[in-house]
Amino acid sequence: MRIFFIICLTLITYSSSAQVKLLTLDDLEKRIAQGKDTTYVINFWATWCSPCVAELPNFEKLRVANLKKPVKVLLVSLDFKSKLQKEVIPFVKKNNIKAEVFLLNEQDQQQYIERIDKKWSGAIPATLFVNKKVRQFYEKEFTEEELKSTLLNLK
């Protein structure tokens, strides 16, 4: 009985806290560097950004279409850290988002915007296509087709 209870508790904690991790830019750079031939499609979004929310399904389609390829879709939320429990995690659950979701754990917008891309104004949605050789940044919304062709034509 006690074991059953512990298993239940573990399952509950796991399922309710597993979805959104905090991520610094150092973490992200490390992940890219260790990714070998993996191309990362990193979408910067927020729960309050309506065009971002509207294009999330396109990223899900891209993820599913590339499951067997060295492609990873990462959704990096720029919501305030204080909104993690109240807004971001419930949003991810409600929309049943399967891609890896993070909340950017950086204080200084001034610094991190430049570091992600020098040309970025800070407007979202924005998406970075990156692997060890290529780094292409787009301050725009993507359709499903555009995501597919941008990934294909990466060089």
Binding site: Q110, W120, G122, A123
Partner: peptide, 10 residues
């Protein structure tokens, strides 16, 4: 010149 997160122009 400064930068901050904002909403894209519609």
């Amino acid at each position: 010149l400064t930068k901050a997160v904002g909403c894209s122009i519609k």
